[in-house]
């Protein structure tokens, strides 16, 4: 890939913004439009941009395969674990109401955690797909 300084400078500015926006979408998901899926893709977009501009090896340096694998799995595990916690607390699977003494705030907690899991998995899967394709010659 060409090392174009203009692109590099601009993306250095843009990437933090994208990450910030991704975090906003991620954590505001339980109040407004947004959530793990969208945020995950935005998050991944930042890394993909980084990879496109600075070379794929820089992404791999930040996120080696093992780490990526761990994130992919952990997102699903967070999601599943939430479900089991609610089961353990006597509710249905993913019944967030039991997470807090006050029902609606339980919903908030539950959605936040689950969406975090979704976000992590989506982001890392999309990055993994990108790396998998880009690494092949």
């Amino acid at each position: 890939m060409t090392r174009n300084p203009v692109l590099q400078v601009i993306s250095k500015i843009m990437i933090p913004v994208i990450l910030l926006f991704a975090s906003y979408v991620q954590f505001h998901g339980d109040f407004g439009p947004g959530g793990g899926f969208q945020a995950g893709v935005l998050f991944a977009a930042a890394f993909i941009l980084f990879g496109v501009v600075f070379g794929i090896e820089s992404v791999v340096k930040v996120l080696p395969q093992g780490v990526l694998r761990f994130f992919i799995a952990s997102g699903v595990l967070i999601y599943g674990a939430t479900g089991f916690v609610t089961l353990y607390k006597g509710g249905d699977f993913l019944d967030y109401n039991v997470l807090s003494s006050h029902g609606p705030s339980g919903q908030h907690i539950g959605i936040l955690v689950v969406e975090l899991g979704v976000g992590i998995t989506v982001a890392s899967v999309v990055i993994a797909i990108f790396i998998a394709f880009a690494e092949r010659d």
């Binding site: 694998r69 799995a73 595990l77």
Partner: peptide, 13 residues
Amino acid sequence: ITIPLIVAPLVFL
């Protein structure tokens, strides 16, 4: 449903 779904990422690791 949930158990195989949860074990899948563990196996993946």
